[in-house]
C-alpha cells in the first residue's frame, strides 16, 4: 500500500536553476526510503516541499489518493497529522523556554480531537509523556527539565518521541544524526529501526551518509544537482546497473 506519492516535483529558488528537478518517488507503508546526496543536491528542499514549508513550483504530492494541493481543511489536517518530521539540529527543534513535557505534548494537543492511538494508551498527560520518554529510552525525570539540560543525543530522542507521539504514517527524517557525536549517531539509528518495528510507520530518511541510510532503509534513492539519478533496493547496492555516481558514493564508505 502506498503512503505517499510524489509526481514530477519541481522547485527553484533562483531563476534558471532548479533545486529539485522533476523528481518522482513513492513510499510504501511501513518501509524506509533513503534519500542520499551531497549538501546542496536538493534533498532537503524536497523534504520541505513535502512538509509544506516550501511551495513547489510544479508537480504534485498525493496522499490517500488525493493531491494535497487541492485538499480541503479536513484532508490537510489529516495529512499534517500523518506526516511528522525530525530535523538535523535538535537544539533548534525544541523551544528553549518550554519544559520537555510541554514540547512533547504539543502535537497531541493540536490533533487530539481526531486522534485514535493504537499503541499508546494512557490515563493522563503525565502518563503519556512518561510513556513517550520510555519509548525512546530516556529517564522519566527528564519530563520536567529544559532542553539545555540535555545532551544532543537526548534532545534528538525527545524530538523523535514528539514525532511518533501521534502515531503518524510517515516521518521525514532530515539528517537526524548529522549533528550528533559518533556513539549517539549509532544509538539513534538503532532506536529509529526498533521504533519502526513496533509502530510500523514509514520513513523518508534523508542523509549524506550512504552507510547510515543502508543500515536503516530498504530502498535507497540517490540525488545530485536536483535530479534523481538512481533508485534501488538495498540488496542491489552492488549491482552492475548502478549509476556511476552511486558507485562513487559506495566507494567512499
Amino acid at each position: 500500500m502506498t503512503v505517499i506519492e510524489i509526481h514530477n516535483l519541481k522547485k527553484s529558488y533562483n531563476p534558471g536553476k532548479l533545486a529539485v528537478n522533476d523528481v518522482s518517488l513513492t513510499i510504501q507503508k511501513g518501509e524506509s526510503l533513503g534519500l542520499v546526496g551531497e549538501s546542496g543536491c536538493g534533498k532537503s528542499t524536497l523534504a520541505r516541499c513535502l512538509l509544506g514549508v516550501e511551495k513547489m513550483d510544479d508537480g504534485s504530492i498525493v496522499y490517500n489518493d488525493a493531491p494535497i494541493a487541492h485538499a480541503n481543511r479536513k484532508q490537510l489536517r489529516n495529512y499534517r497529522r500523518n506526516v511528522q518530521t525530525v530535523f538535523q539540529n535538535p537544539t533548534a527543534s525544541l523551544n528553549p523556554k518550554l519544559k520537555i513535557k510541554d514540547s512533547l505534548i504539543d502535537p497531541y494537543l493540536q490533533f487530539k480531537d481526531d486522534l485514535q492511538l493504537k499503541h499508546f494508551h494512557f490515563t493522563s498527560k503525565q502518563d503519556f509523556v512518561q510513556q513517550l520518554l520510555e519509548t525512546v529510552e530516556l529517564p522519566k525525570e527528564l519530563a520536567d527539565r529544559y532542553p539545555h539540560e540535555l545532551s544532543g543525543g537526548q534532545k534528538q530522542r525527545v524530538t523523535i518521541a514528539r514525532a511518533i507521539s501521534i502515531e503518524p504514517n510517515l516521518i521525514v527524517l532530515d539528517e537526524p544524526t548529522a549533528s550528533l557525536d559518533v556513539l549517539s549517531q549509532g544509538a539513534i539509528l538503532e532506536l529509529l529501526g526498533s521504533l519502526q518495528q513496533t509502530l510500523g510507520m514509514s520513513y523518508l530518511f534523508i542523509s549524506h551518509d550512504l552507510a547510515a541510510v543502508y543500515q536503516l532503509c530498504q530502498r535507497i534513492a540517490v540525488m545530485r544537482d536536483g535530479e534523481l539519478l538512481d533508485m534501488f533496493r538495498k540488496e542491489d547496492i552492488y549491482h552492475t546497473s548502478r549509476h556511476d555516481y552511486t558507485k562513487e558514493l559506495i566507494d567512499i564508505f
Binding site: 559518533v182 556513539l183 549517531q185 549509532g186 544509538a187 539509528l189 551518509d209 550512504l210 552507510a211 547510515a212 543502508y214 543500515q215 540488496e235 547496492i237 552492488y238 559506495i250 564508505f253
Partner: peptide
C-alpha cells in the same frame, strides 16, 4: 566506536 559507525557490507555479495 567501531560498532557505532555504520558501514556498508563487504563486496563479496
Amino acid at each position: 566506536l567501531i560498532q557505532a559507525a555504520p558501514t556498508l557490507p563487504m563486496r563479496i555479495r
